[in-house]
Design a protein around this nucleic acid. Sequence first.
DNA 1: GTGGTTGCAAACGCTTTGCAACATG
DNA 2: CATGTTGCAAAGCGTTTGCAACCAC
Lengths: 143, 143
Amino acid sequence: MMIDTILVSLQQSGHRDTRPRRAIVEVIVGRQGAFTAREIVAEMAPHGFGRATVYRTLAALQSLGYVTRLHVGPECDRYTISDGSHHHHLVCTACGAVFPIAGCEVEQAAHTVARRIGFAVDGHHLDVYGRCATCGVRRRSED
Amino acid sequence: MMIDTILVSLQQSGHRDTRPRRAIVEVIVGRQGAFTAREIVAEMAPHGFGRATVYRTLAALQSLGYVTRLHVGPECDRYTISDGSHHHHLVCTACGAVFPIAGCEVEQAAHTVARRIGFAVDGHHLDVYGRCATCGVRRRSED
DNA sequence: GTGGTTGCAAACGCTTTGCAACATG
DNA sequence: CATGTTGCAAAGCGTTTGCAACCAC
């Protein structure tokens, strides 16, 4: 179970396996798509878990690489689950689904340009947004 | 002069050529690199121009495509001058220099993946950060 | 003169933090 | 039973907005 893997990682990095944290991780894993801190806070409220806890947990997950911040259009407050191996995503603006982009292809293109001007690349961020196959089909028949 | 071009565009879109606006555009054009709203506000303060004006002008320039919001690492509050033709940048984290990346190469890679999964791409955002040639050399000799 | 523009200050929303009580390992 | 964690409320931060005076056209 992905949830336990993450909780174990948290423990290994000196954190504890607590009820609020577990609930937050469960929600995030269950979503399988982009989400905002706001949304998680709303889902935690009924359980009596506060926003501070959500933000702190999100920060911890981010530093462990389990969560990545997306930059879709003008928005920069969305996150997605990540396994740390790829940094790029196709984000569906309709349903929030997130598909990983194999890093190599994009990275190669960026590095080609960088090399040409002697730029030393430290990192990069790419997010592509649009409609996933499911939502694209739905649009054609419903819009 | 780039400055007048922008001011004329503003006028053509129903805006007016005012002293504060001109000052803001001048500063932005003069920088030739990434900047934050905060920095522009600080530079305008001595002239008696307020933050609201800076933010409103920045928004107008953005809607005209003269300014683009960058997403460098965890930051999403930096902007850069843009001519609207390319959406990708190599951003130097040392001096703030911004180099455009020809869109085609990166776009092609992203579209290859998108096509494979039936994803309809609406837009995308890529920013690569690191050290430009000048700062890279300086680092080797000074750090 | 009219309507867009301005500065100010207050409001805003999201995020962070100080703190005392609490619960995990 | 020590220390990381929690919820709460207050503070922090960058940004936006309401408003009356103002100025470009």
